Structure formats: structure tokens, C-alpha cells
Simulated scan of single mutants.
Amino acid sequence: MLHRAVEDISTGSDSDYSSTWISWFLSSKGNEYFCEVDEDFILDRFNLTGLNNEVANYAQALDLITDQLDDEVQDELRGSLDVQARLLYGLIHARWIVTARGLAKMVEKYKRGDFGRCPRVLCQSQSLLPVGLIDVPYEKSVKLYCGRCEDLYSPKSSRHGSIDGAYFGTTFPHLLYLVYPTLIPPKTGPPADGPASANNTGEGKGGRRRGREEVPDAVGGMSGEGGGEGISTASVALKAERYRPRIYGFQLNETAKLQRWQEAMRDRQVARLEELEERG
């Protein structure tokens, strides 16, 4: 289903023609989360190791991305080749944004709020970062990570919501905070990327955000239906999932310690709730 959604993304019109395939791709609607990958990174075959097994028509797709594809071949494989070129660029992009130069480019987008801002009121419009839940393509769509509440959200726009999470990977946001510790959001007060007053976030009294970035939806959350009658609070608490930040598959040491402590506290509270429910 995600595969089909990726194919259905608007590819722009002839009037949107750009001088290079990459500039055309980046200017297409729905691709605002992506940054430009340096050409020398793409041309270094070492950086692309293993991608030939992930992408059909790998050689032709790479030639299309680097604007070296023969016109006759491009006409014959126009439809399928464009899809494969998007997949290849996305997988290259995931590798690029965890390099020093790639991180620097993504920091600029992060500071501008290009990925949106956290909808949680107490996060005071903290800028979000894109993250994948798995590094395998066509499995999970991209999510948005808030470094302040440490939770995940779905993009508000359906165009952004159909982007494959593998194009950003599971490592990116946490490596960015590791490399740029001054950007780690504080848990209280205004966010590190700027004050969050109504004047600069586009909010009015009693109004919603009105800015270039869209307010995302929470990934999780409890339904407001039913009024909570007959629901065991303890069972709900046990089913609650927590996002675990990882860098190259490994949990962050300090974060993992904190989460283990928090889960131990949760287990104690659940035990108390179960005891109270049994008495009631």
C-alpha cells in the first residue's frame, strides 16, 4: 500500500521542468522534507554499496538521477524508471543525511521549521525531525520526532504522510542531536530553536497555528468515544507503547537508562491500580 502511495505522489507538470533531475524532484510537491544530496556523494560508488540489490534497473535509475541517461532508454522505461529513481534517491538520501555535510543541511531545514512543529501544547511549538520506524523500504511511512516530549507524530499532509520512512532512516534525528548537542530541546521554557510566542508562531487568541508548517497528528492517543466506562486503567497503561530512540540499531545509553527507570515506576503504579480496581 505504501508502495502504491509513493507511485501516486504528484510528479509535477511540464511547466515545473528543472535543469536537473534532482532539482526537479526537490521542487515537486510533497518532497519538502528532502534535502539536496551532493553530486560527488552520489558519484562515489562506495557510498552506494548494496543499493544495486534494493533497486530494479539500478544502473539506469542512477543515470537518470545524475542526468546521464540516454534519451532513448528513458523513453522506453519512463514510468517504471521514474519510480525506481525515486526509490534510489530516497535510499541515498538516508545515507547522506547522517554524514557531516548532510546533517548540516538538515539542521538548516530544522531551524526553519520545514518539518513542522509539535502539536503538544506544552512543547511550545518545538521543531520536529523526520524519522523512519524501520530502515527497510515499503514497510512504514515517515514519522515526525519531537525531541522535547520524545514522542512521534504523523505528518498532517497526506503527501508527506506517504513518504517512505526508509528515506530518512531510524538513526537521523538522534544522531543530529548527538552531533549538535546545543539543539537538544529543553524540557521547560521556550524551545531551543526560538521563542514560541503567538507573535512568531502565527497563533492568535484561541486560534490554531497558521504558518508555512503544518500541524501534525499524534501517532498514538486515546479515543474520546465511550467516556472510559468499563475500561481498566491498568490494562490501558500496560498497552501503551513508547518510542525508543536508536542510533544504528543501538539504544542511546542515557535515554535507555531513563526509560528503564520510568517503566519501573509505571509498573509500580500499574500494580497499585490493579489492586485498587480489585478492591472496587
Results as ranks from 00 to 15, higher is better:
Ala240Phe: 05
Pro155Met: 13
Val215Phe: 00
Asp38Val: 00
Asn52His: 10
Arg4Asn: 12
Tyr145Ala: 10
Ala271Cys: 06
Asp16His: 00
Gly227Pro: 03
Pro173Met: 05
Val142Asn: 10
Gly220Cys: 07
Glu203Lys: 15
Ser162Glu: 11
Lys140Tyr: 11
Ser154Val: 12
Leu2Phe: 06
Ile65Thr: 11
Glu225Asp: 11
Lys205Met: 10
Ser223Gln: 01
Gly204Ile: 00
Ser13Glu: 12
Asn253Pro: 00
Gln126Thr: 13
Gln68Ser: 15
Val136Asn: 09
Gly189Trp: 13
Val121Ile: 14
Lys239Ala: 15
Gln124Ser: 15
Asp82Cys: 04
Leu51Val: 09
Arg272Leu: 13
Ala237Asn: 03
Gly90Ser: 07
Gly280Cys: 08
Val98Leu: 02
Val270Thr: 00
Thr182Asn: 11
Lys143Val: 06
Glu278Cys: 04
Thr170Glu: 11
Gly147Trp: 10
Arg272Ala: 09
Leu258Val: 09
Phe168Gln: 11
Glu254Pro: 02
Gly211Ile: 01
Pro191Asn: 10
Asp114Phe: 05
His93Tyr: 06
Tyr243Lys: 02
Ala94Val: 04
Glu277Asp: 09
Val131His: 00
Gln68Gly: 15
Leu178Val: 01
Val107Thr: 08
Gly220Asp: 14
Leu183Ala: 09
Val236Trp: 05
Leu238Asp: 08
Ser27Cys: 03
Gly204Met: 07
Met1Glu: 14
Leu51Gly: 07
Val136Pro: 01
Asn200Thr: 08
Cys149Ala: 09
Gln269Gly: 00
Asn57Gly: 07
His93Met: 05
Gln68Thr: 12
Leu43His: 00
Thr233Arg: 11
Ile97Glu: 06
Arg260Ile: 01
Ile42Ser: 06
Ala85Tyr: 04
Gln124Val: 15
Asn253Arg: 13
Ser141Arg: 06
Leu252Glu: 11
Phe115Ser: 02
Leu88Phe: 04
Asp14Leu: 14
Phe25Ala: 00
Pro137Glu: 12
Val73His: 09
